[in-house]
């Protein structure tokens, strides 16, 4: 089976962003099935470097990158560009910073 790129929206049930305290922004991608989760992990298609590039951030601003098997999820935490609520912050709850993830395409073996 050869791998084909598939839009992440077809592969995930949940794609979201939220504050994790006032200094951090955390991104969750929860995949539809354990098989998809495992294939995505094995493909290394999502890496801290790719996320940093997607968010126009230097890689050192990616605080953590965790594969959380119990939820079939990848969780990435970034340094917030502003502390929550500082003058200039544009998303107090950090709940609308997930959209760039929706642009990802991931290589998956054909079914």
């Amino acid at each position: 089976m050869s791998a084909v790129n598939r839009p992440i929206r077809e592969l995930a049930d949940v794609i979201r962003s939220k504050n994790a305290g006032p200094h951090e922004l955390t991104l969750d991608i929860i995949f539809k099935t354990r098989e998809i989760f495992q294939q995505v992990i094995a493909s290394r298609a999502i890496t801290p470097q790719r996320i940093a590039a997607l968010y126009s951030m230097p890689p050192e601003k990616v605080i953590s990158f965790v594969e959380f098997a119990p939820a079939k999820a990848i969780k990435i935490t970034l340094v917030r560009p502003w502390i929550c609520g500082d003058v200039g912050d544009n998303d107090i709850y950090g709940a609308q910073q997930h959209a760039p993830l929706l642009m990802l395409e991931l290589p998956l073996s054909g079914e």
Binding site: V14, A20, G21, T26, I30, A71, K72, K75
Partner: peptide
């Protein structure tokens, strides 16, 4: 999934 996913919510590292 709903419960495990919630364990991720608003936290830096779920483990």
């Amino acid at each position: 999934t709903s419960v495990a996913a919630h364990t991720l919510y608003e936290k830096t590292n779920p483990y």
